[in-house]
Design a protein around this nucleic acid. Structure first.
Lengths: 347, 347
DNA sequence: CTGTTAGCGCTTTCAA
DNA sequence: TTGAAAGCGCTAACAG
């Protein structure tokens, strides 16, 4: 075990310099009002003892934390990196410090994080929860710490929320496909018990309906937001006698699976089948043709989230809470994978 | 301004439960030896007041915080995500909590992070520094907090270090190219004043030398580890009367630039020019042919780093410090972009 | 089983 | 210009 007992304290310095601790404290904190001569003696003693003031003891008195905590479910997902990046930048401008924790999509871990965050003290929290029911965040509410939910909602809590228009995004994507002449459009759905999974499907349905296209059961495939499911479901679609002429994938990971399957099947992207995926993805510009995607302003999402949090932190406690919900619009990143192509349409 | 002065303390709980603080402390820390009935009363009081124990005050006494800080230069770089992921997992097993901070490759910010980390208290720090000179980390050393440098060295400090064999990696890559029949091999270098930049170049030189191939100035291009430079330098190489038959790129971002340039130039990858890049990259399996890369076990890097840190944290201070330096081997991820291809070699 | 009390190392009145 | 002393919130002997 480490022993840090032998570290010199302010008392040691005071003794060596022949002054009181108060005086030492004054020079350490550059508060002035100390005779030059005394100060020199103290500084000398500090050097002599290699004294370092204990930051922990200090922060016990100086209560301000100027710190916010960010909790995300997957640090390896580039979307969250972007999000955090946006938060951090804004925070720094207001002189707030950001600490990041990764729940790894585990409610248990998220719960531990909350505990930790609370014990060490923060002024506010921004969270993309691993569980939209949100019981694990209750201690934060109890402690009256401002919380902002981002990208995922908290179903049973009155919490400020910033999300992206899921339904609008997929609606636009599918509409675009339709405008390009497609009618046989498949969707690879995400889990229907999550907001993004459900909402993106609803957007799909809406687009079809508005254009008088009937939904075909065979073309609605149920994935789980993971790469493998996109891969497998694409292979299923390929087997169909009546193949779709376009595929809409509900998230980035599944898109990767779709593209891999397409390559293996030799199902020509852009030529025999069009594609749009929800969420941008690094490989988008390296496939041939490039992938059209529904993109989300992740960085902006982070910025907005911080702004909202900042407002809450500055606000007086007594003010009655009125939940704010912001929905940022996604945008269609039109590249080549969904271009009108007569060889598809008229075959 | 928020007022949180009124946070309940252990004294409040004690009062409400009608016991002493000692007893409250006992139940908080699950030390046992408290009558069930009393305990219930205390727990009730804690709930009632929404009491959370102050970790800062606590760690003033119990010198352990069970928390480590990780400092990285770029949260958006997937390599660091992987690294952190490795650290976190190991840490969790030993019941350590990980907090992550992003210096954004700024020495100033890194310095602030250090200050913050010190004030809130941690048992150890793992850092990929933004500045290999490392003055900004001095306060950590002064405070005698164990520090592990990872992926980047700290030139002027005696610090345990875990890195990947940069020289070996590029040596292997270039050797592989040579074995495939290439002699005209270009390198896109990184900045020569950074360890990775320099070392990777040295590996390149070594491989050439060992196989009796003379280095050609025209084929040594100076990049800056950013995508744009890879892109531009590839275009320069293409203009050469005597074009190389293979390109070795010193990092992931530049590789992306190289591939983009190749596509634009219609300089056929795998057919007219072979390619190997240092660092794996998501697009590797989406180009045609797939990209061969020098891969690094980032996750393992993180695991090893934590193990080392753990050792240091458990160690007695009195032990004289002997710097440890671990170098993990990279490995060649051979895919298709460097296959022997007679149409290249013998033209 | 439970309470009293002495710190942890520092900052900050209040006096001198 | 300096010092004495009261905490910050908690833990850990030591007593009962």
């Amino acid at each position: 075990m480490k022993t840090r007992r032998d570290k010199p304290t302010i008392v040691d310095v005071a003794k060596l310099a022949g002054v009181s601790v108060a005086t030492v404290s004054r020079v350490i904190n550059h508060q002035g009002g100390v005779r030059k001569e005394t100060e020199d003696r103290i500084i000398h003693a500090i050097k002599e003892l290699n004294y370092i003031r204990d930051a922990v003891a200090r922060s016990m008195i100086q209560k301000e934390t100027k710190t916010i905590a960010v909790i995300i479910p997957d640090i390896c997902n580039p979307f969250f990196s972007q999000l955090v990046s946006g938060i951090e930048q804004k925070a720094l401008k207001q002189d707030y410090f950001t600490t990041l924790s990764n729940s790894n999509d585990s409610k248990t871990i998220e719960s531990k994080i909350v505990q930790h965050v609370l014990e060490r003290g923060v002024d506010g929290v921004i969270v993309t929860t691993s569980d939209e029911n949100g019981d694990q965040l209750k201690p934060l509410f109890d402690a009256n710490i401002p919380v902002i939910a981002v990208d995922r909602v908290l179903k049973n809590n009155d919490v400020d929320t910033v999300i992206i228009g899921n339904r609008e995004g997929s609606y636009e994507a599918v509409t675009h496909l339709i405008k390009e002449g497609h009618e046989k459009i498949a969707i690879i759905r995400g889990p229907q018990d999550t907001t993004p999974g459900l909402e993106r499907y609803k957007g799909y349905q809406l687009a079809l309906k508005e254009h008088g296209i009937k939904e075909v059961t065979n073309w609605v495939a149920d994935g789980d937001f993971k790469e493998q499911s996109g891969y497998e479901l694409t292979k299923e679609l390929f087997k169909l006698k009546d193949r779709p002429t376009a595929i809409f994938s509900s998230n980035n990971l599944m898109s990767v699976g779709v593209i891999k399957a397409l390559q293996e099947l030799n199902w020509q992207l852009g030529d025999e089948v069009s594609f749009i995926g929800f969420d941008d993805i690094e490989i988008a510009t390296f496939t041939n043709p490039n992938l059209t995607t529904v993109s989300r302003p992740m960085k902006q999402l982070g910025e907005v989230a911080f702004d909202l949090l900042y407002e809450r932190m500055k606000e007086d406690d007594s003010k009655t809470f009125i939940k704010q919900e912001l929905i940022l619009p996604p945008y269609l990143n039109i590249r080549e994978s969904c271009k009108k192509n007569n060889s598809i349409i008229n075959r």
